[in-house]
């Protein structure tokens, strides 16, 4: 029986799942993903996580708990930096050590991912993980190369305008890759951490709702990295967080695009960087005359509040672009 490696459907799963999956499967392991977020998963996460951390990390706890008993290993890399001279939030860094005390937890694959000073360390890390499954270094190297290729394909799909769930469906051949229809009359840029905006449970299906209300949704992941980086460089001082940089870079880019009619920033309760990037984006959106909405997600958020705000926001955007209120 193949070794089962569990991956929590949380945090940077939304960025790197294709890479991780291809790598582990290439080495003969079976990848088991935690179930999509539900009330049950969140409740478990809230119960076992420490109070001080942010909502997304609490949710990640729930996903780790969901995997307990189903897998031989849980892949939970200690993410320190995913780009040179930038950092990932320290709460990510602490996650493997926070979940380690959970009862019944299988061994963690908690290697350090630190690209702050370049990629030298990373090669060592990949080898270390690969060694758990095979002694064949060449096989590890080949699998790694193939995984990076799949990952590149995934990023390209996102840049074509797909959302992560849609891009994964294409990668896994569940749907055909067809040009994306953009039927809405207005386009809204949705900015936020990937694990907030792409998890339909925690954000109460913002993307689905916006689309159902007739708006096209675009996100930071739909942009090429180069675009995001060059726009983010316009800030007087560089932000150290990679994800925050992405949001700011995308915001500054979308503020200049005439086909973008509105901007929504999604923040998670308890997220320090969000409170900072949200404010930065809001100020610039206002100065540019872009309709802007800030949504904060927390475990108590009622659907009614989100629906009212989204509806009112789209009314405002339509009112501005078309000159009338949409009544039906």
């Amino acid at each position: 029986m193949p070794v089962k490696v569990g991956i929590p459907r949380a945090l940077l799963y939304y960025y790197y799942y294709p890479l991780w999956k291809t790598f582990f499967e290439g080495l003969g392991a079976q990848v088991i993903l935690s179930s999509p977020s539900t009330k049950g998963i969140l409740t478990d996460g809230l119960r076992f996580a420490v109070d001080e951390i942010c909502l997304p990390v609490k949710l990640a706890f729930g996903h780790v708990l969901d995997l307990i008993g189903k897998v031989d290993y849980i892949f939970l890399p200690r993410l320190i930096s995913i780009r040179r001279n930038e950092y990932i939030c320290p709460k990510f860094l602490g996650l493997p050590d926070m979940v380690r005390r959970l009862a019944g937890i299988p061994p963690l694959i908690d290697v350090n991912v630190n690209r702050y000073r370049g990629d030298n360390e990373l090669c060592q890390v990949i080898k270390e993980v690969g060694r758990l499954f095979t002694r064949n270094n060449f096989k590890i190297w080949l699998t790694c190369r193939r995984s990076l290729k799949v990952q590149k394909h995934y990023f390209r799909l996102l840049q074509l305008g797909l959302m992560p769930a849609e891009a994964l469906a294409v990668l896994e051949n569940r749907v055909k890759n067809e040009p994306l229809a953009a039927p809405g009359k207005i386009t809204v840029a949705l900015l936020g951490h990937p694990y907030n905006i792409y998890d339909p449970f925690i954000n109460m299906n913002i993307i689905g709702r916006l689309r159902a209300m007739g708006a096209n949704v675009i996100t930071a992941e739909n942009l090429q990295e180069q675009t995001v980086v060059s726009y983010a460089a316009r800030l007087p001082k560089k932000l150290f967080w990679t994800l925050g940089q992405r949001m700011i870079g995308a915001a500054l880019h979308y503020l200049e695009r005439s086909d973008v009619n509105g901007m929504i920033h999604v923040a998670a309760f308890g997220c320090g960087p969000d409170s900072m990037t949200g404010e930065l984006i809001e100020r610039r959106a206002r100065a540019a005359g872009m309709p802007f909405l800030n949504l904060t997600l927390d475990e108590h958020t009622g659907e009614a509040g989100i629906i009212t705000r989204l509806e009112a926001f789209l009314d405002m955007v339509r009112w501005k672009t078309a000159g009338t209120v949409e009544v039906i």
Binding site: A304, I307, T308, E311, A312, D315, M316, V325, V327, I328
Partner: peptide, 24 residues
């Protein structure tokens, strides 16, 4: 906040959030 419930009961032609209604 009770717009959906009431809308179903009376057979509303327009069911709108309160922000837009107040602004209009």
């Amino acid at each position: 906040s009770g717009r959906h419930l009431t809308g179903v009961i009376v057979g509303a032609d327009a069911v709108k959030n309160e922000i837009t209604a107040h602004a209009v």
